[in-house]
Design a binder for these strands. Structure first.
Ligand SMILES: [Zn+2]
Ligand SMILES: [Zn+2]
Ligand SMILES: [Zn+2]
Ligand SMILES: [Zn+2]
Lengths: 167, 167
DNA sequence: CTCATGATGTTATTTTATAACATCTCTGCG
DNA sequence: CGCAGAGATGTTATAAAATAACATCATGAG
């Protein structure tokens, strides 16, 4: 069976060891939080793991359902929102504004602004950290006397794999 | 961050003839829609005018309230959402994803992607159309085989005037 | 005029997010 | 240890944003 005819999978670009992605993300989170004295509690760690369950942005309520299902009892939205708030503050998770959803950060610890290529086909959100974009935004802002605090770049379009599937 | 819930006062620091802004925007909208055969109905035109009541992004429900108050009777959310949908499609209004709010387009008709400098201080959203940003995004996408459909750039920070007020 | 199309009205519901307050749990300190 | 205080979580209720499904109205081509 050739790669070209591979069936649709939850993670479309699934030619990778995703379990490794998750384990890696959790390990980095542990290290970062320990280093900072931030408390990555069991709950927060579980939420982080659920955010990382795919490379697609996931809604707070989707995570909530996972959590409830795992525990057999229903959890309150606030529980998830508070955990997400912590994770975003720590730079472990990014919020995709145009989707009201959350996705694991590809390189936490590094200072970066969050730039995403969001595919309409598969829903994947690929995080990039392009210095040209960063500096272009900074320059444009400076030219107008605007002090940048948090740049948001979310590019909708179609990823490489999805283009090949629907030519 | 709070979006514009205050009464529709023109921009806080703007020493400009805002009535002219609005009239101008409406005139251009009339012309564009006429040219395209799109129907800028009374309702849609009124919503456009309300979006333009300031240079701050306004939420759909804020506009809804204005509309209801003007008419003395309550209007349904869908009424506003449908009008906004039309206005966004026609490029007369942009949606600011990170605020769930809408703002009038500074240069409708021109093809542009929507780049905004959103001030945390005054709530103003200044629309820019910076070619460096545009090309930087396009290049970064091309390098990854990603086909861009709709780039979104929303930069949070503090505008010039607000920096001067709070030094 | 008549019909087809698109626009608006109406009612109900879904999805996303937060408020207010109670309880628990960890940690540092006497 | 035992206790105080801060931070984390639980609980209940509500707010805010968006959409669904279906009915009616308005407009313009033929
Ligand atoms: Zn992975
Ligand atoms: Zn990141
Ligand atoms: Zn103005
Ligand atoms: Zn514009």
């Amino acid at each position: 069976m050739s790669i070209d005819t591979a069936p649709p999978t939850p993670t479309p670009h699934a030619r990778h060891d995703h379990a490794h992605c998750v384990a890696d993300a959790l390990a980095r989170a542990d290290a970062l939080c320990a280093q900072r004295g931030a408390r990555l509690t069991t709950l927060r760690r579980r939420v982080l793991e659920l955010v990382w369950s795919s490379h697609r942005p996931r809604g707070a309520y989707a995570i909530l359902e996972d959590l409830s299902q795992q525990d057999g009892k229903s959890t309150a939205p606030l529980t998830v929102y508070r955990a997400l708030e912590f994770l975003v503050e720590q730079g472990l998770v990014h919020r995709i504004e145009s989707l009201n959803a959350y996705v694991g950060c590809a390189s936490p610890g590094a200072s970066h602004s969050g730039q995403f290529l969001v595919c309409e086909g598969c829903g994947d959100a690929a995080e990039i950290d392009d210095s040209s974009i960063r500096t272009a935004i900074e320059s444009a802002a400076i030219a107008r006397g605007f002090r940048v605090q948090r740049p948001t770049v979310e590019v909708r379009g179609v990823c490489k794999d999805c283009q090949e599937k629907h030519p």
